[in-house]
Structure formats: structure tokens, C-alpha cells
Design a binder for these strands. Structure first.
Lengths: 109, 109
DNA sequence: CATTAATATCGTAATATTGCAATATTAAAA
DNA sequence: TTTTAATATTGCAATATTACGATATTAATG
């Protein structure tokens, strides 16, 4: 149906899924990489860096923001974007947990 | 268009996106959590644990496998699934990099 | 106030994803 | 060899995502 049975899963599972899904697009990976390696916050350059039209980039930024992965502060005519480490921590912790759980397990395959 | 402009991004960005996208669904998060906390590999129980029909679960497992996040070994009539730490490491490293990059930056927002 | 520049929103076409019933496949067990 | 149990594949309907042109919004600047 193309519709996810959200209500059948826990809130935590759904939240993690939203974050991971937000990361699950090459353009959004590129945005995160660009933001993380820029020497300061980025006010406006993002559109020129990506091979996509402005409305498309705006949409991707919205999704990253919605997932708590970036923050945007209005700075006059431009908007200043940077990585939101809070959102990033959530999944990083998730993976950390998975990894430490797995290492305690009697692997058979 | 619903079509991702894959060719405009690097191979690494596309690979990371495939992995993150695979994680970006609550059912697949649930599968990963279940596999990581089971005391041994799981041969068959996964379908009974999830609130989804068997073909749907099978599809989700396929996607996780395709992204390199789980491994499946045929064990007679059943299939033995477990987490593939290789795939997990790839994104974990990605987040680690983002995090360490960000911490070196002069934040302004 | 009119213009300009940066970004967001709307509308829409093309394509992808989700979920499941029906069916196929596979290997052990009877 | 037939049956049974576990899993995969197919086909399809419902819905979501991606991309972008056109247009709106917003705030600085002339």
C-alpha cells in the first residue's frame, strides 16, 4: 500500500526510522557532509553546491530539519544552516547499542 | 519525479544512502533490534515477532540484506539471520566522521 | 515604495515504496 | 513420493517520494 504501519511500532522505532530515512538520500548525505566540513555555518551556498534545482534543495533541507539533523537560523535575507548534533546523537547511540549488543552474542553465521 | 539523481552523486554517497534508507523503516529498525538482542542467530522466528504478513517481512529482510546490514544462512528448512557488522560499521564510521568534523567547527547557530 | 536576492511553498508528473493475497520454491519428515 | 513447514517471488492497489517550474514570501537595498 505504500503506507507504513506506523502505529504497530514503538515511538522510538518510528523516530529512529524518520531520522534514518532523512539520511537515506545521496543529496541529503551530501548536505550533511558539506555542512560538517565547512569552517563556519553556511548561509546560502548550499544550493550552488548541489546538482539540483533550488526548490528541490529546499525540500531536502526541510526534511533534514524535520528529522532534527540540521538547524536553520534566519540571518537577514539568508538562512544560516548547520548540523544539529542532538539529532545526530540519537542514531549514533542507536548504532552503538546495536554494535555492543551484537558483540555480546554467540554468533552462528 | 520520484527518481533520485543517483549519477550526480559520488559512489560513497549513494552507498551510504542505500544503507540509511534500509534502516529508515520502523519494521526494519525492529528487525535489527530483535536480531541484535537475541542470544543466538534467529532461524525463523522473525515473522512471528512482527505485526506484518510473511511476504512483507520477507521483503524487508531482503532490503536489509541488500544493504549489507544482515546475513542469512540457509539451515535446512529455515534460514538463519544475524546482523552483518560490516554494513553497520560503514554508517557508524560515517556518523563518527560527521561528529568529529562538526566538533572542530566554529559554530555560529 | 519598487527592486532585488534568498528561500519557501504549491502543483504536478514520474517513479518508488509498502503491504498483502496468491502462488512458487525448497528441504525435511512421514 | 506425498505432505508439511519455512521462506521467496509475483502481481497489484494504495500511498509516498523526488524533482522542478511557477509563484509566493521575506528582508535588505536603492
Amino acid at each position: 500500500m505504500g503506507i507504513t504501519k506506523t502505529e504497530e511500532f514503538t515511538e522510538q522505532q518510528n523516530k529512529l526510522a524518520v531520522i534514518a530515512k532523512a539520511i537515506g538520500h545521496p543529496a541529503r548525505i551530501a548536505i550533511l557532509q558539506f555542512l560538517s566540513t565547512s569552517q563556519s555555518c553556511i548561509c546560502g551556498d548550499i544550493v550552488h553546491v548541489l546538482p539540483l534545482a533550488q526548490p528541490t534543495v529546499s525540500q531536502h533541507l526541510k526534511e533534514l530539519k524535520n528529522a532534527g539533523l540540521i538547524k536553520g537560523t534566519i540571518e537577514g535575507k539568508t538562512i544560516c544552516y548547520c548540523i544539529d548534533t542532538d539529532g545526530l546523537s540519537v542514531i549514533q547511540n542507536f548504532f552503538g547499542e546495536l554494535m555492543s549488543n551484537v558483540s555480546n552474542i554467540n554468533k552462528c553465521c
